[in-house]
Amino acid sequence: MIVLALTLAPVASAQSSNDVIELHNDTGMVVRLIPFGATVTQIEVPDRDGYPANILLGFATPAEFRVKNSKVSFGATIGRYAGRIAGAGFTIDGKPVRLMADDGPNALHGGGKAKFDTQEWSVRSRSSRAATFSLNSPDGFQGFPGRLQVAVTYRLISGNALQIDYEARTSKPTALNLTNHAYFNLAGEGSGSIRVQRLQVLARRYVATDASGIPTGAFPSVVGTPLDLRQPRALGHAIDSRVPPMGEHGYNHAWLFDKPLGRLETVARLDDIGSGRTLSVETTEPSIQVYSGGYIDGLDKGPSGRVMRTFDGIALETQHLSDSPNRPDFPTTLLRPGQVFRSTTIWRFGVSSR
């Protein structure tokens, strides 16, 4: 998060709705978006032989996203607070803020049923290469203080890359943490498990949490743990491991980067040897939450018509740390009137040789 002073294809037919915004470039990349949740519904990129495929989990139509997506948030914008807040509360300037607990005693992604991923965003602008969604979130939404004006811009840039820019302003001091919840499968949606795909996370430390997912304040070294991804490793090595801190649901862990706050750097890479598709993640954020889809329940079908099952996709959520409003030693998520929240993440796709 950067806070600044304020200065005042076959799949396409399944989504043939006025809701769908399509971005495309001259090298075979297509991105489809809908206003509901400011959601990325599909990304088509070519493999090493030039054949395109949608590499995001999701649904075939905007109507399905509206009915089903609240339980998984495929491709949606997450807020007001991505991650968990302990005890569903915190204080700002000595004043208590009470949220709606929805994850045991804690608040997940801001708490309650109504979150940013269930809101109808406005389309501020659109073209063949970019689209901006905006949302006016009222004072008290989810319990957070301040009327929040939020904008999310998706823009195709050179190198088969999608840049996501977040911007927000508030009328009262508040806490804010935004991310996107896309689930990637570089072999193509409907191709099955991601276990053979390889992940690299360029971090020396991970975020230790208690049994409920709340950070303890410790940042242990990844050395000697299944979270040591400084070199690319097949996802299955940890998904199927029970070596602490792994559990039965695979990855649902965060790493802390050593880079300066607000600097845009490459922080993670994903690749699929079979198709040759690669993904590099660049961000200004200080952390990444990796979730390998361990709670996908196998009840829904994707655009391919195939059932989406546990470990069929992986979310790479660039964001600030969970429970930062209760942790003054963590990078701050406090946003005050007169400041502008800005954050950037880039998904850069490519191909590897055989």
Rank of each mutant, 00 (worst) to 15 (best):
M100H: 15
H181P: 06
A38L: 13
H249N: 12
G140W: 13
Q163D: 09
H237D: 13
A12V: 13
Y154W: 06
S127E: 12
H237T: 15
A60R: 04
G28A: 08
T61P: 07
L4C: 11
A254E: 03
M100P: 10
S324K: 04
L186P: 00
Q231M: 14
I296Y: 07
R195S: 13
L156D: 02
A130V: 11
T170V: 10
I34W: 04
I21A: 07
T77I: 01
E189H: 06
L202I: 08
F349H: 01
S128K: 12
T310N: 06
G140F: 10
E22S: 13
V31G: 02
G217V: 06
D323Q: 09
D103W: 14
T225N: 05
T318N: 03
D139C: 12
A203Y: 04
A161P: 11
Q289F: 08
S191L: 05
F59P: 00
R205G: 00
A5C: 12
V281I: 15
D228M: 02
F341K: 02
G79V: 05
T153R: 11
F330D: 00
S125G: 12
P10D: 14
G143R: 11
D26Y: 13
G274N: 13
R277F: 07
A107M: 09
R147G: 10
D228T: 04
E317H: 06
P10L: 06
S158Q: 14
L261C: 07
T179Q: 01
G213R: 02
L108F: 06
L270V: 10
S212C: 13
G350E: 12
